[in-house]
């Protein structure tokens, strides 16, 4: 790193370490927040698991869900998680344009995911199988919808982040925030693994 040179004085080094530790603390704090969000999703998963058979004469997961459709959503999100990682790598290498491009690709994939999810919701509601239909559907819409809400927040954050990078460049603050944003995005992919497995795949097996 360019900061470490033989002529570096100690006060400067101290300050650098202090700043570095401060950023590390913020990133750690964000990790703690993500852990609390895991518990939030766990509560929703528990509720879904308890209510999964309470269809009250309405459709069950097996009749409602299309596995190829869910797979398409999964692949979009998984790829976006990967490209988000690449954006972080580009940012750490101080390549501004590359960072922005990867973020735009990530944003596009995330938006694709969101549109797929919302059109699935729309289809169910149009068929009369809305969240009012049964306990199972309430749990389904809420669990998947909460994830979708997080995705929406992530996309909004990504827009703000891209504007920030575009205007102010890859400074210390934007690097710190890119790290947190990428953590957030990977985390949403991790949650989706369980939604894919428990809601869609298990749902198909329950037929």
């Amino acid at each position: 790193m360019s900061e470490i040179s033989p002529g570096l004085d100690l006060a400067k080094a101290d300050q650098l370490i202090e700043r570095h530790e401060k950023d590390a603390t913020t990133v750690f704090g964000f990790w703690v927040y993500l852990m609390t969000d895991c518990v939030l999703f766990a509560s929703l998963f528990a509720t879904f698991a308890v209510l999964r058979n309470n269809t009250f004469g309405g459709p069950s997961g097996a009749t409602l869900f299309s596995l190829p459709y869910a797979l398409a959503e999964t692949l979009a999100l998984l790829t976006s998680s990967f490209t988000c990682g690449l954006a972080l790598l580009a940012a750490q290498a101080k390549r501004k344009t590359q960072t922005l491009v990867w973020f735009m690709i990530t944003f596009g994939l995330g938006l694709t995911f969101l549109v797929l999810e919302l059109s699935e919701f729309h289809k169910f509601v149009a068929m009369g199988d809305s969240w009012r239909r049964s306990g199972f559907l309430s749990a389904y819409f809420t669990l998947v919808g909460t994830h979708g809400l997080h995705i929406t927040i992530g996309l909004l954050w990504m827009v703000v982040m891209m504007l920030f990078i575009y205007k102010r460049g890859l400074n210390r603050l934007s690097l710190k925030r890119i790290r947190m944003l990428s953590m957030f995005w990977h985390f949403l992919d991790v949650v989706w693994i369980f939604i894919f497995t428990i809601v869609y795949l298990f749902g198909a097996l329950h037929a």
Partner: peptide, 23 residues
């Protein structure tokens, strides 16, 4: 201090290839 700093900085900035590989 400098030694410590270089250690922390290195831990954060591993060779790019390694991280790319992990993704």
């Amino acid at each position: 201090n400098v030694a410590k700093m270089s250690k922390t900085l290195v831990s954060e900035h591993q060779p790019e290839q390694a991280k790319f590989k992990s993704y």
